[in-house]
Amino acid sequence: MQKQFIRIFSNEILMYAAAITVVIISLLLGISIGSLSIPFSAIIKIFLSQWFGFTLPDDIPSDFVQIVMAIRLPRVVLAFFVGASLAVAGAAFQGLLKNALADPYTLGVSSGASVGAVFVIFYNIQLPLFGTFTLPIVSILFGLATLVLVLLFTRAVERKMSVETIILVGIMFGAFFSALISLMIALTGEELRQIVTWLMGSVAMRGWKYTMMMLPFFLVGVMLLLFNARELNAFAFGESAAMHIGVDVAKRKVIVLTGASLLTGAAVSVSGTIGFVGLVVPHMVRLVCGPNHRLLLPLSLLYGGAFLVLTDLLARTIISPRELPIGVITSLIGAPLFALLFFRRMRRKT
């Protein structure tokens, strides 16, 4: 699909440096811009005083500290983790299924995980052993179950598991689960607007609690995938090719699917369904640094985080003082890109 792809940076260190710079700038922008504008210099001084014991200069009002530390920092950090999770999961799905159109949303995994999350939230369930981790765990399990269902169903339809069939089945399952969620909401009779906003994705007013809730799953998921970067490169040539070069396909597939589901489920449980991040970000990263997963995964993590921080910034400032659901923005960017990729793919076939 990358007919015209250009590898701008040949040097890996340069690529990482560029990505980290983008991440820092986007985080600073995310903290700085809002109903009350806080300059970069003030943000840095606040961090220095909070974390490194420097005294806060007198010219920074104390409500700045409050806004930065209690409101904006937790929000951008959560946005970063959610974006990073979705992007890495998307990259992994694409490699594993050698399918550039795969992402947690198009595969229906996000919707499946949402069903789990809605279930936990609206019926206020708490599993005895897991406490506050009930929400992400149920989300992850629902996401994983959905993924298995989608793949099994696709295989039953067509042994070859072509790109189009997987996506079609994913979207079908996604639609079914969305309907299921609407049904649950209708039955609970709660105030609808808030729920709909959650469903379309948001990282607003979540606080540190949510970041802490998803962090362990994020770390485990990212590790699992990074350890399997070489295997993902092999999978990108198809399962039998992977087998021929010596990959233990069955075992590695389970690991990759688990890792990607951990990331998706954890992200969905704290932010709802945010579509297409996993499609857009790896695609952009591949254009710049090529398809090798050893680079693609960590760079997708960084750029995915930065992407969602900036998208969130856009979502809360564009019709300020009101907020747009973040999923609206990502879908506005992602759906046309999906259409373009799909168009090119079908055109190339004929």
């Binding site: 990358q2 050698k98 399918n99 990108a236 010596g246 233990d248 090529g290 398809p291």
Partner: peptide
């Protein structure tokens, strides 16, 4: 094991394709 076998035998199948633009060297 699959890995041991891959050190002994290599396979060149009829068709193989990838959705991504890997270089020859990669």
């Amino acid at each position: 094991s699959q890995k041991e076998w891959a050190r002994f035998a290599a396979v060149l199948p009829q068709t193989m394709d990838t959705a991504f633009g890997y270089t020859v060297k990669e």
